[in-house]
Every structure is written in structure tokens, then in C-alpha cells.
Design a protein around this nucleic acid. Structure first.
Lengths: 239, 239
DNA sequence: CATGTTTTTTGACTCACATCAAACCCAATT
DNA sequence: AATTGGGTTTGATGTGAGTCAAAAAACATG
């Protein structure tokens, strides 16, 4: 996985908080303040936990390289993947409400993250109003995203879900300046299934079916979207 | 670290922003500031829209009386209910990210809400840091809540979903000092189904089945929870 | 390279929920 | 009292996705 090289994101490479700085337009002075917090860097390899269930959560993390999945665990062991995070994104926002947090983030690839302790964030955001407002934006986006997934889980058939999943992945890669039609999946069929509320076999069948139709080309974790319009259409058609 | 709190909605009745003031512990002076914004009051009756799809969203609303459902609409007409809001709660938070918003809130009962224009809220929160922090809390809670629903939609059977729904309703009524075992539903079977990713018939069957088991008593929209422990158990049992 | 392990694909079968349809209830209206 | 209409319950039937199982492919290891 090459380190993120998108034009937008590199603008904030100095503070290692790519997504955080990106749309807010912090001044040089404000960015310096971020550096003064001397944030710690952590390296994770595949399968490592970013923070464990039961532990109180104390920090935000910006992903510099690699990918994570976030999940919540039911008492009886059932897991639900709540999202996939890639380089240039932030995880841990939900934990700002320190009351109850039973979520985890698990590395899907070798990853590097940058930790920003929450206490410091709070004092910081008092000084930098734009940061405060920007955190709102991120959280709002998270809520909107979650509600989109609720729509997906609540009222779409299996193949529509997989199509929607591929399309959002495509968009996210495009936003990073990478190819929107040819990319590597960084997660297993199992994880995709959990995220979409499906079993891994169903995900596999959907991939195979789209391939038979000539919409995509699949080779294990390599995906090529051949007919993007058809993929779009397959979300609305089957209703 | 923000101090913990105990629920007492009446403490904030003066400013009509029950939930907003509740856990944040605004000072008398701060509450007066809120009043100076001379917020508009709106009255809604059943089925009215709080804000319409396509319109840019400009405000937060605190519900003084009545109930709402929030929903998002797919292009092809499919709707997904994303939540139910009752008196003392706030709706519209997801719309702070003004970019794209295709959600709606629809009154389920005759309702009174109190509008707080967003622009003013922003200037206000610069003056009152605790309000800013509290908005974070609310949004965090929203995210946590949504992710709980994702778990529900992704990995629970129909009866588990209905049981979980009744239990969270029970908790919410308890928080308001109302009976947690005997209450009125303010939404139709259809809405419950949409919220839980089920058809209305399935919801009805689940109610009937729980009634046959002696766990609850149902009379159209009146619910009495007879055996709360059994209802709890029915979430974990069937796996 | 051979070997064991994990992930993915594919097939056959089952079941939970959706779908379709009819009856019922209750409140509002004539 | 009869009628209308929305919401709810209940039954009969169909189907999409889960389950079980086994083979194939990809990956890891000595």
C-alpha cells in the first residue's frame, strides 16, 4: 500500500491529521499548535486492535497508512462491522461520548496511525474554533453515512447491497486520486458480509453473478468495474 | 472530563431546550443568553413535515410536546425510518453538515417544537463552550445509537429486533419518569417495520407471539410489558 | 517444492421472512 | 344504524438468503 499521495491530503502532511485538516483550512499557526501536542505514532500489523473492548477510550486516531475495520461485539459473540477506514481518515469519533463504548478497530493491513489524546483535543479546540466546527462536520458526515447504511441494511436485497458497497468504495478511491474502476479489496468476504448484513457465501455469489453479467471482473481481492452504469442500475432495478 | 449528570428535564423548562440543557449544566446566565435568541415556536400536527426534502436545512429543533419520526427516502420511493424522537429530544443534528441532506422529519402526533436557527447557534457556541461540548455529546450518542441499530439490522432475527425495540422504548420512557412497562406506541406497525427492516405483518406476528408467550400484552397501540426479563432473554436466546 | 491452513467458490437443501389475500377492528362520517 | 377507510391481525404460499458441505484456489511455512 503506497502512502497517500492525493493532492488534497498532502497539503496537511505536516500535522499527520490529514482528514482533520483537509477541509477546515487551518492556518499555519494553528497547525503548529497541533504539532506542539507531540502526538504519538503507532504502528499496527494485520489483526492488531487499535483499542480493546472494555477499555475506556481516550484518543482520536488519524490513519496515515493501511486500513482498519471498526466493529461492535454482541455479548454472545456476534460481530457487526460498522465501517472500513482507509488512509487519510479518522477513527474513534464515536468514543467522544465516553460513557459506554464497546467498539473496536482492527487493522486489516499493516497500518500506521497517529494518536491525538482527547483531553488535549478539548483544550486545543477551545483555542481553535475552526477545529471545533470541523469536528462537527466530521461527526455529521459519520451520522449521514451511518444512516445510509441503515437504508441499505433495512431495505435492499443482497445484490443491491454488494453493488452499493462497490460503488462507495469506488467513490472513496476516486476521492484519493486512485483509480475508481480498478482496486484491491483490503477486507475478506466475511468482513464485507458482516458490514452488509449478509453471509460470506452470499457476497461471493453476488460477485460471481455480477461477473457473469459482465459488470465487474473479480480475481479474489482484485476488483475491476467494467460497466459502472450497469452497476448503478442494479441498485434500483430489482425493486 | 465533563461531569456526570442525572436526568431532570423540568430543570430546563424555562429555555424550552430540554435535552440541550439537560446534561450540560448551563449556568443561569447562559440560559438567559439562549432566551435572548428569541427562538420561534412552531406547532405541528400529525403527518406534518418538520423540514422538507430538498430544502436546505437551517435549524435545530427541540421537541416540547408530541413525537416525530425521521426518515430518508430512496429515489425509487423506498423509505427507511431512521429514528423516533419524543418530547425532550432534539432533531436535525445530522443536517449540520449542510452539503447534502435528503432526510425528513414527520410528526406522528400533534407536536410543538422550538426552533433554534443554526447561524445563531454557531455564534452562541463560541460564547458558551459547554454548549459546544454538549453538542458533541449529543452527536456522539446519535452515532452510537445508529451503530446499535446497524447491529440490529445486520444480525438479528425478526423477533429479536422487535424485542430490542420494545426494550429501548421502555428505557426511554423510564428516563422521562414514565412507566417503563406500560405505554402507548406513537407509531404504526408500518413505521416500526421500516425502522427495524421488517414488513408490518412480521412486526404484528412478533407482537402476537410475545403475547401468546405471556411476555407482553398488546391492544393495538397500548403495550404492557409483563415479563421484562423474558423479553430481555428473547434477544440472546435464539442464536 | 511439498504441505498444511485459510479463504473463496460452488452446489444442494432448508427455513425465516416476504408476499398475497382475506378478515377484522375501531373511529369517523353519513 | 350503516358505511367508509386506515390500521391491524391472521392464514396460505413463495422465495431469497441462510445453512451445510465439499471442492478449489490462494496463501503460508518449513
Amino acid at each position: 500500500m503506497p502512502q497517500s499521495n492525493s493532492a488534497n491530503i498532502s497539503a496537511c502532511s505536516t500535522c499527520n491529521l490529514a482528514e482533520l485538516c483537509l477541509p477546515v483550512g487551518l492556518t499555519a499557526q494553528e497547525m503548529q499548535r497541533l504539532d506542539e501536542l507531540n502526538m504519538q505514532k503507532h504502528s499496527f500489523s494485520r489483526g492488531d486492535y487499535l483499542y480493546r473492548s472494555g477499555d475506556r477510550f481516550r484518543a482520536l486516531f488519524a490513519i496515515n497508512r493501511g486500513a482498519f475495520k471498526t466493529r461492535i461485539l454482541h455479548e454472545d459473540g456476534r460481530e457487526q462491522v460498522t465501517g472500513f477506514q482507509m488512509a487519510g481518515e479518522i477513527i474513534g469519533l464515536d468514543a467522544i461520548s465516553t460513557d459506554r463504548h464497546d467498539g473496536e478497530a482492527v487493522a486489516l493491513e499493516s497500518s500506521v496511525v497517529c494518536e491525538l489524546p482527547f483531553q488535549k483535543l478539548e483544550t486545543l479546540s477551545r483555542d481553535i474554533p475552526s477545529l471545533q466546527r470541523h469536528l462537527h462536520k466530521i461527526m455529521s458526515r459519520e451520522i449521514v453515512r451511518d444512516q445510509g447504511i441503515m437504508l441499505l441494511l433495512g431495505s435492499m436485497r443482497s445484490e443491491e447491497r454488494v453493488a452499493a458497497f462497490l460503488l462507495t468504495l469506488s467513490q472513496r478511491y476516486a476521492m484519493r486520486g486512485l483509480s475508481p474502476t480498478q482496486f484491491q479489496l483490503c477486507m475478506s468476504r466475511q468482513d464485507i458480509g458482516s458490514y452488509l448484513g449478509l453471509k460470506l457465501e452470499t457476497v461471493s455469489r453476488a460477485f460471481s453473478h455480477f461477473q457473469d453479467e459482465g459488470i465487474i471482473a473479480v480475481k479474489t481481492r482484485s476488483i475491476e468495474i467494467i460497466d459502472l452504469a450497469l452497476l448503478q442500475a442494479s441498485i434500483n432495478s430489482s425493486c
